[in-house]
């Protein structure tokens, strides 16, 4: 008898522990995400359709790629404000390369695509290297460096394209990287996103470099004392950030079917918002891949849901702002629960 009395009591306390442990680990995000999904579905039944679920996953993968890029820098207690404009610059430059080799898809299309992707990553890595060298070796504040780089990248993007979209890129880019499905099941942006997430997970959790990034953000002095080449690692974080952003730029270019100099306008703040809503700390040293996925999903669910329920576009901006503040507030609460 006594056992049966003790039983529920024990399990209650265990579930209590589990309950708080879950929140401390993942925050309130999964709950909010499900609540939002159900809420929008009740208002607009079309939201529950399979096509919409696929659409949410597809659209969020673009944001998740960029937020993952941003996370590498956020971990080191840095910032990348130039991310959006680097996306614009890479989009224009790689489109010009592709259009130069195979205008309108006439010519060696495969070579054109490969050259375009190669150019994108190379340009992205270069922009990241400039950011990283200024931050890591010259000790200039990341905010200032990437703000300057934002101006530089924007100028280059508009100068290269003359301010107009680059139209004559091969159609195959759009067909292969934005529409349809790889192996008949998985949409290309989702596949690329998953590959990047898996690689990031491996780098962040299983390599010395990745673990050092966490230490660098949490206690940069400790990395120095510990004999870790932190300047090089810090620089590499920016290079990786911009390279991933460049891959994101290719995906977005493929979706749009044109190289757009105005592509990256709102992407910086969105990428930071998605990462931080997910639980990546702005104070550095904290953040995991799953956080970025949750944050990216939340922002996308919110925006698609508001579109489907026909919320005014300007009102959506207000809602997003409230969500950002609310998410950061909940993040503080999560920290308190854990302590």
């Amino acid at each position: 008898m006594s056992a049966s009395v003790d039983g529920p009591d024990l399990s209650a306390s265990r579930s209590h522990v589990w309950f708080f442990g879950f929140f401390a680990k993942y925050g309130f995000l999964p709950v909010i995400l499900i609540a939002l999904y159900v809420g929008f579905g009740l208002v607009e039944p079309a939201f529950f359709s399979g096509a919409n679920a696929l659409n949410i996953i597809k659209q969020s993968s673009y944001l998740i790629v960029l937020a993952t890029a941003q996370m590498f820098v956020l971990l080191t207690r840095g910032f990348d404000l130039s991310l959006g404009m680097v996306v614009s610059m890479v989009s224009v430059a790689s489109s010009l390369v592709m259009a130069g080799i195979a205008p309108n898809g006439e010519g060696p299309v495969i070579i054109a695509l490969l050259a375009g992707v190669f150019a994108a990553v190379a340009i992205g890595a270069m922009a990241g290297a400039v950011n990283g060298i200024c931050v890591a070796y010259f000790d200039i504040n990341p905010f200032v460096v990437t703000m300057g780089m934002q101006g530089i990248a924007f100028g280059l993007a508009t100068t290269l394209s003359g301010g107009f979209p680059v139209l004559d890129i091969p159609v195959l880019l759009n067909k292969g990287l934005a529409q349809g499905a790889w192996f008949g099941v998985i949409p290309p942006p989702v596949a690329v996103c998953l590959i990047i997430l898996a690689a990031s997970y491996f780098v962040l959790n299983r390599t010395v470099f990745g673990r050092s990034l966490y230490l660098l953000g949490a206690n940069s002095r400790a990395t120095e004392v510990g004999g870790i080449p932190w300047r090089r690692y810090n620089m590499l974080a920016y290079v990786i950030c911009s390279s991933i952003a460049a891959i994101g730029a290719i995906l977005i270019t493929a979706r749009a079917g044109t190289g757009e100099p105005s592509l990256g306008g709102g992407l910086v703040l969105q990428s930071i918002a998605a990462a931080v809503i997910g639980g990546v700390a702005l104070r550095g040293g904290e953040g995991r891949v799953i956080h970025v996925v949750l944050g990216g999903l939340l922002v996308t669910v919110l925006s698609i849901g508001m579109n489907l329920t026909r919320v005014d576009g300007f009102l959506q901006e207000i809602v997003l702002g409230l969500v950002v503040v609310g998410a950061v507030f909940l993040d503080r609460l999560r920290l308190k629960i854990r302590l």
């Binding site: 931080v276 300007f314 901006e317 207000i318 503040v325």
Partner: peptide, 23 residues
């Protein structure tokens, strides 16, 4: 009072204020 990162707070109010102005 909430001891929240000023970057995120003002990012939020940036979006709210310009949203109100546009709306």
């Amino acid at each position: 009072f909430m001891k929240v990162s000023p970057f995120m707070v003002t990012l939020g109010t940036l979006s709210i204020a310009s949203g109100i102005a546009l709306y």
